[in-house]
Amino acid sequence: MAKKEYAFYPGCSSQAKSSAANYLTSVNTMCDKLDIKLTEIPDWNCCGASIGYAEGGELPRLAINARNFALAEQHLPGKDIVATCAACWLGARETKERLDHTSQLMKETNEALAAAGLKYEGKVNIRHMVEVLIEDLGYDAIKAPVVKPLEGLKIAGYVGCQTNRPFGIDGESFENPKYLDKFIEVLGGEPIEKYEQKVACCGGALAFSEPEKSQKQIRDIVESALDHQAELIVTPCPLCQANVEVYQSEINRKNGTKFAVPVVYYSQLMAVAYGSSAKDAGLNGQLIRTEALEKIANR
């Protein structure tokens, strides 16, 4: 039996051939090494993301999140829901808080769920994968399986917004959370402790609708990492990863710059440090290849 078991909420971007498919690959590898068992919530749906507010409004957004809770309570009773996506975690946790604190919204949400024969009891907990790693396992347990330390690798821990604000991880400060730096450290790498853009916003969904404004954010995030001689950027958020990696070529095209800083997930660092192949760490999913990590993986 696995050491820890959870009801898994992968989210849309982690599905096969979606924008964070390589995140899921590396999470599966990481969890395998750490003896964490993830059982997908059967028939889960989208959380609505942050940008869902304009057309979706309040109750429809709460109701679709509560549908996932109801399914988890019914099929995986007693297990915490674990999300890997920042927006999924945020959307779900916001929903849970609002429903648990407002009986009227709870009543209305259950009225909506009843249309599909479902009921949310208010029992389930919502966690992010990094919370599971830090709170349920601890840094020593994260360090234990390391066989290929990321020696000499300078890594900028880009925490971003939604795995940080408004809920925070493990009670850390919103302005300078340390958990990504600690991950890098226990894996044998060298964190950029003075990374100015650590909790800056990449533009989120506005990368689509306001490309100029978002690309200004992204440029700052990349430039600050380079200022500190970082070889790569690591993040816990699928949208941060995609935005910061994908738009570097657009920024280059428009400005004649030559940015090409790889952006990876914490789970990819762990998979490599735990001795898995580049493929099992999802490194073949990078648009900007990370030769430094591939070299360690292939060693």
Partner: peptide, 10 residues
């Protein structure tokens, strides 16, 4: 079921 939940919530 998903659409029924959404319709009722809306």
């Amino acid at each position: 079921g998903f659409h029924a939940v959404l319709a009722k919530a809306k």
